[in-house]
């Protein structure tokens, strides 16, 4: 039992960090947060109107198809 209190503290802190690190990434709460942020990011772009460049492209393609 030659471990100093300081070392004990360090060791305990280290192992509790390790436990938290191995437990936390699988935490459903964290996954939910990530999911929400992903959807917010995606939806933000998905709700923008169709840019002119794509409507122009389709118009050109349709015209070519008619010839």
């Amino acid at each position: 039992m030659a471990i100093s209190d300081e070392d004990k503290g360090k060791k305990a802190k280290g192992s509790s960090k390790l436990k938290a690190a191995s437990r936390t990434p699988q935490d459903p709460e964290v996954f939910d947060m990530i999911g929400r942020r992903l959807r917010d990011y995606y939806d933000d772009v998905a709700k923008q109107p169709v840019p002119d460049r794509f409507l122009e492209l389709l118009r050109k393609l349709d015209k070519k198809g008619e010839e």
């Binding site: 509790s16 960090k17 938290a20 690190a21 936390t24 990434p25 699988q26 935490d27 964290v30 996954f31 947060m33 990530i34 942020r37």
Partner: peptide, 19 residues
Amino acid sequence: ARVRLAALLGMETDKINSA
């Protein structure tokens, strides 16, 4: 991807701190 994102976004760290 989830595990990696959690780490990159510091969510893991926050959790550890709040623990």
